[in-house]
Amino acid sequence: MSKLSIREAINQVLHEEMARDDRVVVMGEDVANRDNGGVYGITAGLAEKFGELRVIDTPITESAIIGAAGGAALTGLRPVAELMFIDFLGVCLDQLMNQIAKFRYMFGGGATTPVTIRTMIGAGAGTGPQHSAILYPMLVAIPGIKVVAPSNAYDAKGLLAQAIRDDDPVVFCEHKAIYTEECEVPDEPFTIPFGQARTVCEGTDVTVVAFSRMVLLAEQAATQLAAEGISVEVIDPRTLSPLDDEAILASLQKTGRLVVVDESNPYCSMASEVSSIVVDRGFDYLDAPIRKVTAPHTPVPASPVLELEYVPSVADVEAAIREVVAY
């Protein structure tokens, strides 16, 4: 085991998987940049080690990056394409939504598209309205792709290895505000199966389902509230599609109360989705209304003051937990 940040864990997986399988290529804007390996240095060292035929710097051309990654995956490579910020999905959505996601289905099972799209999500870095969105609910709504959002370095390593080895298209969402979060990570390669939630901490009074960076907030809230005698169970689904709805329902059955914490905008969010699943299939377990803690229905502002107001806080999570517990 070594203490690694999320950023380091992702870099390590890319090295390991490229060494393990010659068909793995990394492509995108600035990925081969020898000085730092992209905006946050995630791909540092790959070009030196694996060469420019496998670590491919592209022009600023999101439709061609995503489309070519799909075409390369159809024809025998396992591309890891970088969509620098998930906001750029707006530039290239057709190639993901109408092409890659549908290849297998519309070709009657005759195609396999093992592509991984790594992309940065989230507010908190002052990156403003077009570099800070979450957007993963849009992708979860599309059949044919899988969506992953790790909240720590251990999961980032196991889930990214799984994404690269997976035979289906996977969008791997990296929250830019937690890249430096560290934890113990096994030195050897390993995978974490998709669709298996992690119980971050066990509790009996309320279930908090949190996604990506919000898991860290939920954990802090759980620690704070433990001192007040409120026992909080935090569930990190880790993969958004497939979603481990059974784990959520099982936890709810135990606690009877649910808070969902999601940095998405509120409508059609993961918070909405989890709430909907619970109302549909776990209504009898509920002893209190569900509370959703999300960003508001606004773009992400640039002002640090407004951004702080935008992103859910630990206090917001605590307030929601207190509310459902007091109901």
Binding site: L53, G67, G70, A72, L77, Q95
Partner: peptide, 19 residues
């Protein structure tokens, strides 16, 4: 999708170039 194919074909060409 009108114009949907060329990026995909470029990806296939990328496979050929890589291999």
């Amino acid at each position: 999708i009108v114009g949907g194919g060329p990026p995909i074909a470029a990806g296939a060409a990328l496979t050929a170039r890589t291999l």
